[in-house]
């Protein structure tokens, strides 16, 4: 699971959960796989990203040096920054671990790189 996916997911489909974001992230196994950098794609994606949550995610899985704490103001023209953002969003992958609902403590396992967001019928709204 890429950190991009973690940035977009909530647990708000669970009963009584109000925001369900951000999900806490724990990693047992992390893999970094270089992938094609497309500056336009990253640049258009950044307005949708919660940078603070991405930064926290890198800290929580032992990738503390991946990105700066704040979003660069000039990111559209800052290729160095966009490359770092690409790396954090799309190259760092949690292979095994879990995400945890901040309100209920419900765990969502990550296995073989795939986040498991399955819930039982009696858990949902």
């Amino acid at each position: 699971m890429k950190l991009f996916t973690h940035n977009m997911l909530t647990s708000k489909m669970i009963k009584n959960v109000k925001v369900g974001y951000p999900l806490k992230l724990h990693a047992a196994e992390v893999k970094v796989t270089p992938s094609e950098f497309r500056s336009t794609y990253v640049s258009r994606m950044l307005p949708k990203i919660d940078w603070g949550v991405l930064y926290e995610a890198t800290q929580s899985i032992g990738q503390a040096e991946a990105i700066p704490q704040s979003l660069a103001d000039d990111y559209e023209k800052n290729e160095d920054f966009l490359r770092k953002a690409h790396h954090a969003l799309f190259e760092i992958e949690v292979i095994n671990g879990e995400m945890i609902c901040p309100e209920t403590g419900r765990k969502f396992p990550i296995k073989d790189g795939i986040p498991n967001m399955l819930v039982n019928e009696d858990e949902v709204n």
Partner: peptide, 23 residues
């Protein structure tokens, strides 16, 4: 496919229409 363009999640379609995404 560019790995930044495709993201797979194990999730039951019966419940996803309550939208677990932030957008």
């Amino acid at each position: 496919v560019a790995t930044s363009s495709l993201h797979t999640i194990l999730l039951d379609g019966r419940f996803c229409s309550r939208n677990p995404f932030r957008f």
